[in-house]
Design a protein around this nucleic acid. Structure first.
Lengths: 116, 116
DNA sequence: GTAAGGGTTCACGTCGGCGAGAAGGTCAAG
DNA sequence: CTTGACCTTCTCGCCGACGTGAACCCTTAC
């Protein structure tokens, strides 16, 4: 299939798909006319990519661990992916820190708003 | 006083003070040699600026409402600042939305990490 | 053959407070 | 006079997943 159809099926923009290719996450074939040619399995691959990105992994990290993270019903073992577990923990910590920052900011905002 | 001293007293970088001036939040005088000349009251002004910024206001908004937000013990009425109250509410809402996003992200991250 | 609706590759914009380096001027002290 | 601390303006960089034209090529239907 071509990029538009995959975009529809996967629920992302064509621009995003080109971006993933740019980052090496998706490597479609090419037709004679230069069009990108995607396989059916790429729908699942994109789902995996978006799942990881929405969890806070950047494209470089996604690239390193693409294929060994559980994304659906058939759980792939994390053991197959040395380092992923630690990476997830690190991301979780940064996320927690960011949440704490925002909560502090929220407190300061309330402080400002509590004028007479 | 000059920029270095104000930076120390206010606990910000000299770069930040130049940035505030760039945004029109701080307008120091100039010495014959071209040095910025700050008044003693600017220490409090900077405190007010950083308080508002740390609460999530951007420099443009700080500029609009600088001087009428409560920052210390002597509460200035919000009534003197038409619009500030609404602005704070809007910022609070965006902040809450961002917090919700991050909590969702945290959930998705846990989802990823819960592989077998 | 031609119009329509894809597709392609750049390449800059976003969001913004401030870090950081370059190149050079000002000034008090030894 | 000279060092050296501190100051000046200028300008790019950051953090990154995309949005958004611009200018042009491919394919298919009619």
């Amino acid at each position: 299939m071509r990029i538009g159809e995959l975009a529809r099926l996967a629920g992302v923009s064509a621009r995003a798909l080109r971006h993933y290719e740019d980052r090496g996450l998706l490597v479609p074939g090419r037709t004679g006319g230069g069009y990108r040619e995607y396989a059916d399995t790429d729908v699942a691959r994109v789902a995996q990519i978006t799942a990881m990105i929405s969890a806070g992994l950047n494209t470089a990290t996604v690239g390193r661990y693409l294929g060994c993270a559980r994304t659906g019903e058939h759980g792939t073992s994390l053991e197959l992916c040395p380092g992923l577990s630690a990476e997830l923990v690190a991301i979780g910590e940064r996320l927690e820190a960011r949440l704490a920052e925002l909560r502090d900011q929220q407190a300061r905002l309330r402080e400002l708003a509590s004028a007479d």
